[in-house]
Computed example of a mutant assay.
Amino acid sequence: MITRRDFIVTTAATASSPLAVHAANERDVRLPLKAQPRVRTLFTKPTGDGRLLLFSDGSESPSKLIKPEALERAFGPGTELVLQQPDHWRMIEEGWFAEDDLYEPTEFEDPAFRIWHANYRPETEAHDLLYDLFRDQITGPFGARIPDVGLELGEHPSTPRYATAKLDGDWCLPHLRAEVAERTSWLVIDDGNAFGEAER
């Protein structure tokens, strides 16, 4: 039978043990923020041949990222390998890192610059969002036509990656808007041509 004194002594000894100190420190460790899913909006702009190019509400140029050494200092080695660029943007928006901890990828040789082009450039992002949404109607890996909505998805032979989603004309917008709304609530086609407002 354990007495009150034995309990206090045992508890104090356990609390001061290296394992207990480590466990207490672990509770204070901050984990990197992951980007939360959010509703994405697609806009259109004319291409010059009567068609419309779709683009997302993402940034027109690569947004700032957190330097690898700042991530390592905050979360430990290898953290940058498990984060995506939107994770960086969320932590920056939350004010977790100072300006000195950030950099803007601008060099073609920078892998982060290529990753942005391949995934987050507004035109490419619009392509990927629609490609995923209409995957049930796509048979080839490099392009597709969805005739019911006048949509053409295309991968262009370029480095870094560039992919586009185009509509046959503005008369296709109501059909695309209705079809997208029927399939998901996470993607919205803007009601009007936002080219002038967004100055793209």
Rank of each mutant, 00 (worst) to 15 (best):
E94G: 00
P105H: 14
W96I: 11
P86C: 07
A112S: 13
F108G: 00
P111I: 04
Q85K: 11
T106L: 06
E99V: 13
L83S: 08
H88E: 05
E99L: 12
G95N: 05
Y103K: 01
Y103S: 03
Y103C: 07
P105N: 05
D100C: 04
F97W: 07
P105Y: 13
G95D: 07
E93H: 05
E94I: 02
M91T: 03
A98V: 10
P105A: 14
A112I: 03
E104C: 12
E109Q: 11
A98H: 12
A98Y: 04
E109F: 08
R90K: 11
W89N: 02
A98F: 07
D100W: 00
G95S: 05
E99F: 01
L102G: 05
W96D: 11
D101W: 06
Q85L: 15
R114Q: 10
V82D: 09
D100V: 11
M91N: 00
E94N: 05
R90S: 07
E93V: 01
P105C: 14
E109L: 11
R90C: 02
P105R: 06
H88R: 12
R114F: 01
L83I: 10
E107Q: 14
E93K: 08
Y103N: 06
P86G: 06
E109Y: 05
D101E: 14
D100M: 08
P105I: 12
R90E: 15
D100E: 15
D87F: 08
W89F: 15
D87K: 05
Q84F: 15
F113E: 04
D101Y: 04
D110Y: 05
T106H: 03
V82Y: 03
F97A: 09
P111V: 02
L102T: 06
Q85P: 01
E104Y: 00
P86N: 07
E104H: 03
E109K: 08
F108Q: 09
E107S: 13
T106E: 10
A112P: 00
D101K: 01
L83V: 06
P111G: 01
V82T: 12
F113R: 04
D87S: 06
D87Q: 05
E93Y: 02
R114K: 11
R90G: 00
R90L: 12
D87V: 10
E109V: 12
E94S: 10
Q85F: 11
P86I: 09
E99K: 13
P111D: 04
D110Q: 03
T106W: 02
Q84D: 15
P86T: 08
I92M: 08
W89V: 01
Q85D: 14
P86Y: 09
H88M: 09
A112H: 14
F108T: 07
R114P: 00
L83W: 09
E99M: 11
E109H: 08
E107M: 12
E93I: 03
